[in-house]
């Protein structure tokens, strides 16, 4: 199968941290910023930048609130994000199914 037949990988998802974020959010109803940071094992800065990119693309929604005096950020995957993640998986499959 020539390279141009491979499905295009979504550049928004095609990054280790953003892929990790969506993989986690697909399994949970919602997750806090700290939960994502601890589960993925990344820094505040990297995570914030990745979350912003995913939010801009409409793949996740971010809610900011306060728990007492502490800020609490929670994230959820959107329907568009679920669809995009599903298509990303199908695209990955096309690479695995390719027989040289």
């Amino acid at each position: 199968m020539p390279p141009e037949k491979f499905a295009q990988l979504d550049p928004v998802i095609h990054s280790r941290i953003r892929l990790a974020i969506l993989s986690i959010l697909i399994s949970v109803k919602e997750a806090s910023f700290n939960y994502l940071k601890d589960t993925i094992g990344t820094t505040d800065g990297n995570l914030s930048a990745s979350l912003s990119k995913l939010e801009e693309a409409g793949y996740i929604s971010i809610k900011k609130a306060f728990k007492g005096k502490k800020p609490l950020t929670t994230c959820r995957i959107s329907e568009k994000g679920t669809q995009a993640f599903s298509e990303y998986l199908k695209a990955l499959e096309s690479y695995i199914e390719f027989k040289e």
């Binding site: 892929l19 993989s23 690479y95 695995i96």
Partner: peptide, 22 residues
């Protein structure tokens, strides 16, 4: 992206999902 990299990505996705289910 090649076949091995795609398989690695699947493993990575699975690992992230498993972390939420343990």
């Amino acid at each position: 992206m090649n076949k091995i990299q795609a398989s690695e990505e699947f493993k990575f996705i699975r690992e992230m999902i498993d972390r939420t289910r343990k």
